[in-house]
């Protein structure tokens, strides 16, 4: 995944079963953002792996005031990259019961 300057990580352990998972997002490199950024720290939120779209969450963050509109794409991509990785790992994991 491209280094967007925005870091998204799991905020909880992934048991591979839950549809909603906690993620944590923060800015590692503010210079990569296009708009003004006020360092809020890490933003934790719940994300539904089955129903939600990363770009919608990014837009909500913009509307909440965490990011400028011009950075919605970068934030959305960062979330998307992490979600893709989570799903990929889940597909690779063979359940213990099997």
């Amino acid at each position: 995944a491209e280094d967007t300057g925005v870091r998204v990580e799991l905020a909880e352990e992934d048991d591979g079963k839950k549809s909603s998972i906690a993620l944590k997002l923060w800015v590692e490199d503010p210079k990569k953002l296009k708009g003004k950024y006020k360092d809020n720290g890490a933003i934790e939120f719940s994300y539904d792996l089955e129903k939600e779209v990363p770009e919608d969450v990014a837009q909500e963050m913009v509307e909440t005031g965490f990011f400028h509109e011009s950075d919605a794409k970068i934030v959305g991509k960062s979330i998307r990259d992490r979600v893709s990785l989570i799903k990929w790992k889940r597909e690779r994991t063979i359940p213990v019961t099997e």
Partner: peptide, 27 residues
């Protein structure tokens, strides 16, 4: 450490807290 909660109009909760020191990138 201080933590605040912000709720978006659509209902999503965002919990804001300081980035853990161990996760800060070397400047």
């Amino acid at each position: 450490s201080s933590t605040t909660q912000v709720v978006h109009s659509a209902g999503r909760r965002f919990i804001v807290s300081p980035v853990p020191e161990s996760r800060l990138k070397d400047q």
